[in-house]
Nucleic acid binder design. Sequence first.
DNA 1: CGGCGACAAGTTTTT
DNA 2: CTTGTCGCCG
Length: 733
Amino acid sequence: MQNLLDKLNPSQQKAVTHTQGPLLVLAGAGSGKTRVLTYRVAYLIKECGVPPYMILAITFTNKAANEMKERLVQILGDDGERVWARTFHSACVRILRQEIDAIGYGRNFNILDAADAERLVKECVSELNLDEKAFAPKIVIPVISDAKDNMLSPGDFLKRFGNDYRYKNIGRIYELYQKKLKIQNALDFDDLITLTVKLFEENPSILEKYQNRFRYILVDEYQDTNNSQYRLIKLLSQKYQNIFVVGDDDQSIYKFRGANIRNILDFEKDFPNAEVVKLEQNYRSTQNILDAANAIIQNNTGRKGKRLWTQNGQGNKITLYTAFDEFDEARFVSDKILELVERGKTYKDIAILYRTNAQSRVLEESLTHSAIPYRVLSGIRFYDRKEIKDVISYLRLIKNTDDDLALKRIINEPKRSIGKTTVDKLALLAARYQISMFEALKRDEILESLQRAAGKLVEFRDMILSLKEMVNKVSVEELLKQTLEKSGYLQMLQESNDPDDMDRISNINELINGAAKFDETSDDPTFENYMDQISLVSDIDNYDDAQDTVVLMTIHSAKGLEFPCVFLCGMEEGLFPSLKSLLEEDGLEEERRLCYVAITRAKEELFISHAKSRLVFGKTEKSRVSQFVKEIPDGLLNKESAYEETPAVKVYDFTKPQPSAFTSSLLNMAKKEKKDFEFNFKKGDYVEHTKFGKGIILEITPVGNDYHLQIAFDEVGTKNLMAAYAVDKLKKI
DNA sequence: CGGCGACAAGTTTTT
DNA sequence: CTTGTCGCCG
């Protein structure tokens, strides 16, 4: 253990060796907070003799939970496995699967994701004959979510807001929504937390059981907790007060999801006798990067106050690039990446970050043209793809046949000639009998009244029941394969002519592989556990740096990650900070924290770019540089621009009129063209590329002032290159 | 009942 | 510009 402590600085040591009573660790970006968390767990077990199962370590993402688990196993061996290192959601699911009958739900509840919740809300709105636009899910769901976060039941909500027409109706939607969830024995994401709180508040003996069990509680990313999560923590830690939270008020970026920064700011008030440890030494970035981050964040009010420093040295200046438009920006990014790689960086050292997912497209195109391998951690989760959701819906229905949402999704997918009219009729009859739709399919009198369609419905019902028979008799992988077979889903895709369906099949194969992996690696590979796991993962959880590619993602997704080189794109007013944030109270401060998070992802090199104009909804809009960029001291920046070839040596001659931005950019582009184009290849030429080796040109297509080349290389396969970039690296052979 | 075409709306971030 | 939804027609 002493060796472990030797690896820590004095502040970190102080945190790790604090064992009794509440402690807040204010951990700046890159200050080694994961190390502190894991070492503290190790310290409790090894030095204080705390049994591992008495420790609960809570994180927000599965990735963080798995990372912590891995590191604990490294230090502690088997004892590491026995610590509960889980996300809020998965910890709650685990508790609810044991105890939820105490509050009137069945233990085999299904978990709805955001898309399901949206569909359910739409159903409610239409059943209540409310206007679909005024009560769109976008409006209704955040209100319901907020009500749940504050532990307001539909009744409480109506009592409090029932005077307002709009809120009264949202209250009615909430009421119906919750009723439907109950009938289907389903929980949404918020329910996982709030029902656990409700369970504990209404059942003191159950609460006490878990208080005794989890004698030591650790919470990561404490600044992201919302009200119900705070309440949960508070309840669980009430008896023994061993609550150890780690967070950074400057990195609170999830207000829109209910995160309440008050939780971290008021920790000392909430937990009397709390101690506070600040971790300010940064082990990640260069001093220049930290100076920029510090300069920006100090414009926020209501901070705990921290100033990051490092022994890593000053490092290079931050590059700031002023682009003509987003295409020029993308080209800058690609060019710089090629340069970095030439200087010895690998692709996986590089991340491209942006505010909104929509920005990725142009960047992707440019990367493709430059033959730079990349991955996008997209906004669409793997499990959100249609074909995956369809298949999962089968599994959900098999697991819990009362899941009407799942049933509706797949009852006619593939086509079984069970049309909308039939489904609506069935739903109506089920509602009349107060039972789920699948239950209705078991009643003769209901089937009779459906007449013509009854045969098909019975066929569907029996198919599901026969699959249900197999649950936990065969592996999850096998169950999945049987489902694809018996439902005819796979066959439908295989017989399709749509090229997209080929991708769908490969996605489904990936799902099968995932299930097989689950069967092999899970310590308890039941069907139920599999379903819980897939309900709670996101794409970022699957990010691994094993593949050597550049990675693109939103800043939100990048939280908790680090890269030697970071590109921060689209630093423009209205985009970042976003237009909407400027209208919200404290919105700008949240954006500034987001900017702080973005900058502190970089270890060595940081490139910031903004465009003078950008296409928005297909229209060209002028844009100004982000105010956050202006908050960075000039001395830290190395400015480059589409408008000037060599800004450092350029002498301005103010006696002559300056060219307008537009003309100067055109001049600049013309210059580039002249330089770049000595292009004398033709289709069928054998060529050698400095990176890809030998190949043959398959196709040359003019694109604007450039040429698109398709070249089949002997070793790396067929690549698409743009002549302007490739020409220097290509020669005829 | 299913497929296709027209039109509208939307881009902030997601466990 | 793209995606999703709605309505009409076969």
